[in-house]
Write a protein that binds this DNA or RNA. Structure first.
Ligand SMILES: [Mn+2]
Ligand SMILES: [Mn+2]
Ligand SMILES: [Mn+2]
Ligand SMILES: [Mn+2]
Lengths: 219, 219
DNA sequence: TAATTTTTTTTGATTAGTCTAAATTTATTT
DNA sequence: AAATAAATTTAGACTAATCAAAAAAAATTA
């Protein structure tokens, strides 16, 4: 049996391993989970002893097949609960992350199976993230960050990189929601900020940091 | 903030205090929560220091107003989740208790408010137990245990005292579900077991222990 | 290469919850 | 009232998860 804490570590390691950056190192894990490096080291030893991660002193860790399966199962739970909260309980997409963070740990395959059926087997969560199937299979959609687009491109918002309430609330208020079609009107070379055309009438300025965290697909 | 364990203790103390029996003593709490008396004592001290219970050495404990409010809130969560599992996810009434035991600890007033609305503000859970309102107000329905009925009585099953899977599965298999009308055909004086008339054709023998745990109302 | 900085691990403590065994208090018998 | 039994608390130890401070290793810089 895994504790809630251990499950959160696995999920964190999974996500860090997916990123292009330095990988799941002691410090980055500590930063993401808002804990201290010393705590991480001791947890890594525990996870290694349970054969959930590959751990070698001073090295970034990676998940074993077993650990990856666990991580994907929790991510599946998380995203299905988010879908439930948004589409059944009428929450906004910026309100559901913390709740799903707790619900994901209720461990029952049957519960998740029934929930999945009840929701109509959704493939994506409210933030555009793919929901792994019961076997942990996950589709990687070919989306690119808005910042990689050129002037004149017309694209559709298909996801976000950042899930904080502040960021999602901002997008919601500006009308930058999933499925929204936008056109890049102008890119300011100095700071790489963008002027977006939301519709015939309105345009919107966004910083580079914003464009880094919005994922789009070709319209 | 209360831990999951502390919430379970409060709920347990609430239920034991409601019963006609000896009340919430160290040993009974230990028995219900499947822990040891020593553990209970140390937890009682902690709950007392948080002003959640009245505790005096060697005496049965009782909830403070604050403690009672907490307990009723958790019971509300529990019963709403049970209702959800049965009426939305198609679980049977004998499958939901353990899941609700976990879901009840996801602490969010907004979540419960939305869930309540989504379910259509149910007043009773799948076992016939009343769901406390958001303020902790709870109706006490006037049901009596089947064992107190006399030969010839016609009654309707309105609840159960015992929530174990074994007991509920037994009732389900025998067709003794909520709302079922039954007539007491015969009471065996020797062991107080009953012969119940389920319909024109079929009757069923049940032990005294069974009749103690079925709650009924007059038909 | 040597010095410095950063990262990671170790050490020793803390808190929550639990347990066994022993001590104490309360209740029941004789 | 004394002896016995039952219930409860205390004492001491354990695991899981955490932290601060110190030590050690790795990476960087000079
Ligand atoms: Mn979580
Ligand atoms: Mn999401
Ligand atoms: Mn519980
Ligand atoms: Mn119930």
């Amino acid at each position: 049996m895994l504790s809630q804490t251990q499950e959160n570590y696995l999920k964190c390691i999974y996500k860090l391993s997916e990123e292009i950056t330095e990988g799941a190192t002691t410090n980055t894990i500590a930063e993401v989970l808002k804990t201290k490096a010393a705590s991480v080291t001791s947890m890594l030893k525990k996870l290694a002893s349970k054969k959930l991660i590959h751990y070698e002193k001073y090295q970034a860790v990676s998940l074993t097949a077993k650990g990856k399966k666990e991580a994907l199962s929790i991510i599946r739970n998380h995203r299905l609960w988010e879908y439930f909260l948004v589409h059944k309980l009428n929450f906004n997409w910026d309100e559901v992350h913390d709740l799903a963070e707790e619900l994901e740990h209720v461990n029952s395959d049957l519960l998740i199976k029934r929930l999945d059926m009840f929701l109509g087997f959704p493939k994506f969560d409210p933030h555009g993230d793919p929901i792994p199937d019961p076997n942990g299979k996950i589709v990687h959609l070919k989306a690119l960050p808005l910042c990689e687009c050129k002037t004149g491109d017309s694209v559709i918002i298909s996801g976000v990189c950042e899930h904080s309430t502040e960021f999602l609330t901002y997008l919601k208020e500006k009308g930058l929601t999933l499925g929204k079609k936008i056109t890049i009107e102008q890119i300011i070379p100095f700071d790489s900020s963008m002027k977006l055309l939301l519709n015939k009438k309105t345009s919107l300025f966004v910083s580079y940091k914003i464009t880094q965290n919005i994922l789009v697909q070709w319209a």
